[in-house]
């Protein structure tokens, strides 16, 4: 009896071991999720600094919607934030084969009245646009800004990046996480400093930081008059 009990225990033990052994390779073959790295940012803190004393500022975010960012800016600034995902516009035009119409689309893209926006988060959308579309978008954004309004843009300094968009997830005012997702076309040419300044002719450069992550962070301001 004792022997039969032992053998039953062994049998169950064997099943248990087999299950564990089967589970192990599956776990080993599962893609290892890389821990997200926080990248320093210098311009975001300045951007927040310009806006924090304003009463219920209006923000426009040109990146894809990131829930934690919406909360972050809402908490930090008590603002009204409008998400206008430019990457999805690019994707829609690429799919429809109307990418050449993007400049005309940007000219009528924004429904807000001119001079009604305190801050614009461009992130790196300009890296994905050709020259004509970039210029039209920059002009539209300049029109949207209030006098003394501020615009934050990231511009890649590296050529030949893979076709990926980046979600910039705010960790804190000095750190961002980069989360990539597939894009239908890669970044266009890296813009030179002079090109960027000319593109935002109606604004003046307030700060510019060259980061180790091959991103030039730039803050523009609209003159107060």
């Amino acid at each position: 009896m004792a022997e039969s009990a032992r053998s039953l225990t062994d049998l169950f033990g064997l099943f248990g071991n087999r299950r564990a052994a089967e589970a192990r390779p599956a776990a080993a073959s599962a893609p290892a999720t890389e821990p997200e790295v926080s990248h320093p940012t210098k311009a975001l803190q300045k951007f927040l600094g310009w806006l924090e004393n304003r009463e219920r500022p209006v923000l426009v975010d040109l990146g894809p919607v990131v829930g934690s960012n919406v909360n972050f800016f809402g908490e930090q600034l008590g603002c009204r934030i409008r998400v206008e995902d430019i990457a999805s516009d690019i994707e829609a035009h690429l799919k429809a084969g109307t990418i050449d119409e993007l400049p005309a689309f940007f000219a009528r893209r924004f429904t807000q009245p001119p001079g009604s926006v305190d801050g614009i988060l461009c992130w790196d959308v300009f890296d994905y646009l050709d020259k004509a579309a970039s210029q039209t978008l920059a002009a539209a954004l300049t029109t949207l800004l209030k006098p003394d309004g501020v615009l934050l843009g990231f511009f890649s300094t590296a050529e030949g990046r893979p076709p990926l968009y980046t979600k910039y997830v705010v960790v804190d005012p000095m750190h961002l996480k980069y989360r990539t997702y597939p894009a239908s076309r890669p970044r266009q040419r890296a813009l030179l400093n002079g090109d960027i300044i000319r593109m935002f002719g109606g604004l003046r450069v307030s700060d510019s930081f060259l980061m180790k992550s091959h991103i030039r962070e730039m803050l523009f301001r609209k003159s107060s008059t």
């Binding site: 219920r56 908490e75 934030i81 409008r82 998400v83």
Partner: peptide
Amino acid sequence: GSVDMQRGGGKPAAKA
């Protein structure tokens, strides 16, 4: 669309 996280007086809860 837009998100308006209304608070009394519109003052931020936590500053940077």
